[in-house]
Design a protein around this nucleic acid. Structure first.
Lengths: 199, 199
DNA sequence: TCCTGGATGGAGCGTTCGTTCTAGCGAGGG
DNA sequence: CCCTCGCTAGAACGAACGCTCCATCCAGGA
């Protein structure tokens, strides 16, 4: 056999990767409980047998893996947008704008995959909760690094990173509900002002 | 027959009210898809017949009503906490603290009922989405009124109200995932700082 | 007194759920 | 050559899903 674990972005993906991506996308739209394994296997063009072959832990393992996928995806966006702008306040505003654009492009349906997947399993699925906590921590870390690199004090950077991520998260949710970019754009401006006040 | 629509807080509640409260509480914990009608009727000590008698629109109507219940509930908290403190920055910090306390008291399980219920039905249930949008709007209105009453300019108050609600929402979510009050307490401090910068 | 109609109680409909299980496929190594 | 084994394929299971339907109850009006 050929090792089909390729993470290539070009050609056809391996079965396992297709399953993870389908899970992530579906749970992002419909949440954990709203997404069925059969729907996932259909969407991924894999069969039920393949799904349980790669994820013997069933739906929970699948969801945790999907969260880690969303984690890496947004971490990539965060790294690239934060890296492209020197001023941290402007960089955070840029992130808000990018998130708003992607949300609008999906007709307000593709929110945060981590939030949508982990909410509704609160307390009842430790693996999922842990994966979600790690994602938020990773994102906060990226923001905190950027802030520290711009001369903001350690403790301030740590706390600001919390609020930057949480405000974006809340604003994205509001943007979905209101079907409008406004909450995210306002959040970007306010976060910029807040960051500037610490320089 | 007696009109059993009493909203009394004292004695036994009417069947309809018990159903709404059970729905709100369950969906707050498990989301829309994760909550079954039979579970609701069991929890509310009502029967399936009663549920469909009062809510012929089925699960969607039930969810929309539950969101409106959560809306009124949090609006009450908001009114009372914002009214008890003159300084708007301190008042918002107080709200964050109260939310954190209640969240901890529920062992990090009772998040925002509106968010938990509406997420995962994005775009597919207009009634639910509308009820959620109205809840957020009502809450923003209460915050904006407080800010305006403290001499903050109309447009600034409008935008700040957006970010106050959205940041609290995002921080509550993070607090649930991390099982920690920290995100909410940080959010309270940052929102206070942001508000103060507009005075 | 009977009648009426809101409210209750719950069996049962067809469907889908997550999961299990076994049979078969086909490329690589001996 | 055949054998092995990672992978695919999908039927089948019991349980739960949302919802329909009808029998029953009972207070208030005629």
């Amino acid at each position: 056999m050929k090792t089909t674990t390729q993470a290539g972005t070009g050609a056809a993906l391996g079965t396992r990767e297709r399953i993870v991506r389908a899970t992530s996308r579906l749970m992002q739209r419909q949440g954990y409980e709203g997404t069925g394994i059969k729907q996932i296997s259909r969407e991924a063009e894999a069969t039920l047998g393949s799904v349980y072959h790669f994820f013997p832990g069933g739906k929970q393992e699948l969801a945790a893996e999907a969260i880690r996928h969303g984690d890496r995806e947004f971490a990539g966006i965060l790294r690239s947008v934060l890296g492209a702008e020197e001023d941290p306040a402007q960089a955070v505003t840029d992130v808000a704008r990018v998130v708003a654009e992607e949300l609008r492009a999906s007709d307000w349906v593709d929110g945060c995959p981590v939030t949508a997947t982990s909410l509704g399993t609160a307390g009842r699925a430790p693996d999922i909760q842990r994966a979600a906590a790690e994602a938020f921590e990773r994102w906060r870390g990226l923001v905190a690094d950027k802030l520290r690199g711009c001369g903001i004090a350690e403790q301030d950077a740590y706390e600001l990173a919390h609020t930057v991520i949480n405000t974006l998260e809340g604003a994205e949710l509001a943007a979905q509900v209101a079907r409008s970019e406004e909450p995210l754009l306002i959040a970007g401006r306010h976060l910029a002002r807040l960051i500037t006040s610490y320089r």
